[in-house]
């Protein structure tokens, strides 16, 4: 299997060369194969979100290389990388445009990667296509197609964000604690939806989560980060045999060490 994503010798410091300098990564390496669903866990400050940020390009790395397939992307701007890397955020308001309707949001997402020109963005045919697409979510959103997204619940918005981000083919999906702001019931639903979409479309996925049960139940590989280093990396059969208690034990040991 070829590597879809490679991070090679990554260094990342915040507040470099000041008294507040924080070393997040030094000589960090990670390879992700095509088709993998990687769950990433770790305590606060372990570098999980920074990892997603440097991959998506919302922050730059100090040293090292990030490759998608064999192409270096670490010098590309965030909006360029976004054309092949999708991301769903913890805050449901970040992935959708609140003052636009569901249909308008979907029309924007459908045109991703193309020029946003002067042709009309919506027509009747598209609206009925979008309704069919929304029906697959089983949330009744097809009846709210002309409702502003700000009127939707967090779960509905997160489902819409997932749909939008995977509407056009992408190489890599980054999920940044995307169920953390939802109640347990809704986050379970969103997690099931995530798995269904990822499986249907065969999208390589990195999912950061604080929910150890999700990390164990879903995905084909599990990483635990601590102070910018991978302390657990299980995939295949090893991953299947993992239970929450195993990683909770390591997690607690790390947390005590850190004084959390």
């Amino acid at each position: 299997m070829p590597n879809l994503l490679s991070l090679v010798h990554i260094d990342k410091n915040f507040y470099k060369e000041t008294i507040d300098e924080v070393k997040v990564f030094s000589d960090f390496n990670l390879e992700v194969e095509s088709g993998e669903f990687v769950s990433i866990v770790g305590s606060n400050g372990s570098g999980k979100t920074t990892l997603l940020n440097i991959i998506s390009g919302s922050i730059d790395i100090d040293k090292g290389e990030i490759k998608l397939f064999d192409k270096r992307i670490d010098k590309e701007k965030e909006y360029i990388r976004a054309r092949s890397i999708g991301r769903v955020y913890q805050d449901p308001s970040r992935g959708t445009s609140p003052n636009m309707t569901i249909a308008e949001n979907l029309a924007l997402a459908e045109n991703k990667g193309n020029i946003y020109g002067l042709s009309f963005a919506l027509n009747k045919k598209k609206i009925s296509e979008y309704k069919e697409l929304l029906k697959t979510l089983n949330l009744g959103l097809e009846d709210k197609i002309n409702v502003k997204v700000s009127a939707l619940s967090g779960g509905e918005r997160q489902a819409l964000a997932l749909l939008m981000v995977t509407m056009k083919p992408i190489d890599l999906l980054l999920l940044d604690e995307h169920t953390a702001a939802l109640d347990p019931n809704t986050s379970q639903k969103i997690m099931e939806l995530t798995e269904r979409i990822v499986k249907e479309k065969h999208i390589t996925t990195l999912m950061v989560t604080h929910n150890l049960r999700f990390a164990v139940e879903y995905g084909s590989r599990l990483l635990m980060l601590n102070k910018g280093e991978v302390v657990i990396d299980k995939c295949g059969k090893e991953k299947e045999e993992l239970v929450v208690d195993d990683i909770l034990k390591t997690f607690n040991e790390i947390s005590i060490e850190c004084g959390n």
Binding site: A82, R87, T96, P98, E104, G113, G117, L118, L122
Partner: peptide
């Protein structure tokens, strides 16, 4: 203009800039 794709994106940039970046727009 606000019904065109470009008009939609202009509205999205003002409404949620992060999303417009996620959609690959400058």
């Amino acid at each position: 203009f606000f019904k065109t794709k470009r008009g939609f994106m202009l509205r999205a940039v003002g409404d949620n800039e992060q999303m417009s970046v996620s959609l690959g727009s400058n």
